[in-house]
Design a binder for these strands. Structure first.
Ligand code: MN
Ligand code: MN
Ligand code: ZN
Ligand code: ZN
Lengths: 158, 158
DNA sequence: CATCTAATTGAAAATGAATTTCAATTTCCT
DNA sequence: AGGAAATTGAAATTCATTTTCAATTAGATG
């Protein structure tokens, strides 16, 4: 099993690369590159966590108080459509975003006490999921798997 | 792998049993048995599907137009707390409820075209999930696993 | 560079499911 | 039957998300 551990913010190399991808996506779709989109994407990629639009907005707002919540919200949607961000909804029913690279599919362990999110990839489970789908003649496109409980830090000192 | 297939509405025997359980729960908690709770529970158990409060309310309302939405909503919460109903939120972000027996944990295949929901149980996956949690020193309490795609009927005539 | 058009922006309003409030009613214990 | 406490249903509220709209901006064209 591959362990991701704590999400580390990406190197500036990858960030530059991703921002290039975004630009291409925008041009392709006849959309425009703007100062706001650029700054929001930069901050989002730099933070690199599972973050809500609201949270990202607060961060952005510290540095760039002229950028509105709506634009942050819309830019996250855009990043999602362009394949640079994944949209996630965990048990608290808030929509979160995380930077996504093409091949890094993973699932989540979510601590019900401290809220920490740990990522994992378990190919054996993925294979079994495909098999289940197959047995039902179901064409699987995506899946969602989340384990809820208490993380290593929280499980003792409850 | 155990196949549940289509959820069949429960026999009147099981329904009676569950309603007994509800009564016990209410008494235990110092809550009251009411005509509304009885009727809502009956209808819910009879329908036996993954249903929203709104949908259940509409059904109830056909027969008992004096029962309000709020009471349906609250009774579903109650059924959940008493262990008779499971609360589920799939990708459409609506809260659904389904009758639940103590030991029938299962996960879901959800058709993105027709919305049909198929249930399955795959113990191998469950075991692997436990192992993943263990590797992280994570104390797993519950999990959520949903496969999204196209059901047998929908995958061809798209 | 100037012009033009379509896209973008940000504030405010709208949406919609979930939840809470509150006065009237009902349950059920004594 | 009496009375305290729980319940009910309509309406109001909450809160994240999404949409609206008038003003601004990007960037294509000449
Ligand atoms: Mn993740
Ligand atoms: Mn189910
Ligand atoms: Zn924790
Ligand atoms: Zn289908």
């Amino acid at each position: 099993m591959k362990v991701f551990g704590k999400r580390t913010s990406e190197g500036s190399r990858q960030i530059t690369q991703k921002k290039e991808k975004l630009k291409n996506f925008l041009k392709e779709k006849g959309l425009k590159s703007t100062r706001q989109r650029d700054l929001i994407a930069s901050e989002f990629l730099k933070i690199g966590e599972h973050i809500t639009a609201e949270e990202l907005y607060r961060e952005i707002n510290k540095k760039y108080s002229d950028i509105g919540y709506t634009t942050v919200y819309r830019t996250l949607k855009l990043l999602n459509k362009s394949g640079l961000a994944a949209e996630r909804v965990f048990a608290d029913n808030l929509t979160r975003y995380e930077p996504l690279s093409a091949e890094d599919h993973h699932d989540h362990l979510i601590c019900m006490k401290c809220g920490s999110i740990t990522e994992f990839q378990e190919l054996k489970i993925e294979r079994l999921q495909d098999r289940v789908a197959e047995e039902f003649g179901f064409l699987a496109v995506s899946h969602k798997m989340e384990l809820y409980g208490y993380c290593n830090k929280c499980k003792d000192n409850a």
